[in-house]
Design a protein around this nucleic acid. Sequence first.
DNA 1: CACACTGTGTACGCTGTGTCCATATAACCA
DNA 2: TGGTTATATGGACACAGCGTACACAGTGTG
Lengths: 202, 202
Amino acid sequence: MAQLTPDANTPPRRGRGRRPADQVRTEILTAAGGLLLAEGMAGFTIEKVAAIAGASRMTIYKWWPSKGALALDGYFTVVAPTLAFPDTGDIVADLTDQLVAFVHLVRDTAAGRIISQLIGQAQTDPELAAAYRERYSWPRRAIAVETLTRAMARGQLRADVDPESVVDQLWGACYHRLLIADLPLTEDFARTLVDNLVRGLR
Amino acid sequence: MAQLTPDANTPPRRGRGRRPADQVRTEILTAAGGLLLAEGMAGFTIEKVAAIAGASRMTIYKWWPSKGALALDGYFTVVAPTLAFPDTGDIVADLTDQLVAFVHLVRDTAAGRIISQLIGQAQTDPELAAAYRERYSWPRRAIAVETLTRAMARGQLRADVDPESVVDQLWGACYHRLLIADLPLTEDFARTLVDNLVRGLR
DNA sequence: CACACTGTGTACGCTGTGTCCATATAACCA
DNA sequence: TGGTTATATGGACACAGCGTACACAGTGTG
């Protein structure tokens, strides 16, 4: 596996004594992200991360409070946040673009499996749940709400719409198919979600 | 704990040899459901279930392929399915009633935590994911889709609506708040979901 | 140069898993 | 009724992973 030597410039100097803290920290995060991509949360153990990073488990326990916290940090070091949300002035086009991009990220890359398994782990790991909300879910929700609010101010949407609920009905619907997976998560599905909401069912 | 003697009529005859299969099976399922309610998936282990049921782990391994399968069976023995979906002829009222009832079930009873943790576990347990889809998610989805389809036939909804996507935008949105929990899951939220979709955002 | 800080190796106990056995007894059949 | 089969039980085993503890060895700082 490539992660066994995370950086060719720094030969794996594995001896007894101390190594620079930042270097070890980086190697651990790289190893965590790589392991997450390779095996998912099921095979993600602190012991394996330590082995790949060539670090001691003690070091990991010292810096990360839980397995979930380490996994979340590892995920962010591997997957760029990509939080851009263009505001072209056409709310329907913007929502559709963002939702379709999200569907592709989640379906066509390893990010989907990792996100779903992080959410899964968060159901029994309160610290991970809090970290996920603060560092991932909430910022993304805020950006979408802001865009919706601007569209309401422009008069493209009714002024009495609750933008938070709209976010749940677009992204939440996608998460539903990602996590339950009783029906496929497709680009058409994303477009239908926007269409249902904007036009209404009647 | 009450589960230590699941049934007062059947004294805990813990000896060596064989016991009636149905009785043991029932005691294991009762123990599994009780443990699930008491501790959630985090503290749910085969060893504890065996101890509470007064059964041997071997017996459990023989009948249930995975921890998730046992948990799901245990859940169904404790929580009645309650799949009724009244069709009064007014689709908006029916959807609202069902969604509000779902919100109460999930928020005010132990079912919410168990469901979310079962879904969480399913993210790294393919067998549990399949069982959850077949025995829980799919039947509920089918009933909702059927009701929506009848409303379309009556002309209460547009004829070109995709009912499956509507289910994701109503129940999926609630699951989103249940699983991520960055915003509260309230009765008002449920009503807003229906309103958003039926009236449209414009 | 001395000191504090911190990563490393190693060891320990704990919990839970998954599997095996021999034994005991219920359920079934002749 | 009596023999046979099916199966639940207690106990043991190896294994993985967690979380913690301790002594040692280097790094960085004054």
